[in-house]
Amino acid sequence: MKKIAFIMTALLIFASSAYAGSPSNVRSNCGCGLGYILFKDSKNPGILIQIFAATTNGTFGNQTFGISSGTLGCGQPSSFAKVDKMNKFVAENMDNLAVDIAAGQGETLDALAEIAEVAPAKRPQLYSALQKNFDKIYFQDNVNNQTVVSDVSGIIEKN
């Protein structure tokens, strides 16, 4: 009986100290996701609340979705968002972009540079590099937009 009373007392002390622990930022310890959304407004986010938040995130496996979509308290990585926008733009403008890259100038190329967040001062050098690499970017007639974006992104990184 003494053993049970001791264990119950120890659990009660641990639970109360875990809950009443010093306030901290739930997100910094548990990350974004459903657990963060559910427990972010807790008045006293001690260790117990953080365990619930982390367990919720892990159980529902939603952090990856939150990160890639920029929801559930997650920020979408700028490079992911940029590549996603570039993929959509290139898919809708493949032919015009090919013409502009071959010419080394044009509105479609300007728009792509804007989406890729290339500084205006660096664009002439980039356009020249893209023009020189036209045959590598459009190496076949039925090249897809992801391949074009990948090749263009590689050239942007080098310039």
Score class of each variant (00 low, 15 high):
1 M>E: 14
2 K>V: 11
3 K>I: 13
3 K>F: 13
4 I>N: 02
5 A>W: 06
5 A>Y: 08
7 I>T: 09
8 M>F: 15
12 L>T: 10
13 I>T: 10
15 A>E: 06
15 A>F: 15
17 S>G: 14
17 S>H: 13
22 S>A: 12
24 S>M: 13
28 S>W: 07
29 N>L: 12
30 C>V: 12
31 G>A: 03
31 G>H: 02
32 C>W: 04
37 I>E: 15
37 I>K: 07
40 K>V: 05
40 K>W: 08
41 D>W: 07
42 S>F: 09
43 K>N: 13
46 G>L: 04
47 I>W: 13
50 Q>V: 05
58 G>E: 09
59 T>C: 13
59 T>G: 14
59 T>M: 14
60 F>Q: 06
61 G>I: 02
62 N>M: 15
63 Q>C: 08
63 Q>D: 10
65 F>Q: 14
71 T>Y: 13
72 L>M: 09
74 C>G: 02
75 G>H: 06
76 Q>A: 14
76 Q>I: 11
76 Q>P: 08
76 Q>V: 09
78 S>D: 13
79 S>M: 10
82 K>Y: 00
84 D>G: 06
85 K>E: 08
86 M>D: 03
86 M>F: 02
88 K>M: 02
91 A>P: 00
91 A>D: 07
93 N>Q: 01
93 N>S: 04
95 D>L: 11
98 A>N: 11
98 A>W: 01
102 A>N: 12
102 A>S: 13
104 G>E: 08
106 G>Q: 03
108 T>C: 07
109 L>I: 07
110 D>C: 06
112 L>N: 03
113 A>F: 03
114 E>T: 14
116 A>S: 14
120 P>C: 00
121 A>C: 03
123 R>Y: 01
123 R>I: 09
127 Y>T: 01
128 S>D: 11
129 A>H: 09
134 F>K: 10
134 F>E: 04
134 F>Q: 12
136 K>Q: 15
136 K>W: 05
138 Y>E: 10
143 V>Q: 07
144 N>E: 10
144 N>C: 04
145 N>K: 10
147 T>D: 12
148 V>E: 02
153 S>E: 08
153 S>H: 03
156 I>H: 01
158 K>Q: 15
159 N>G: 00
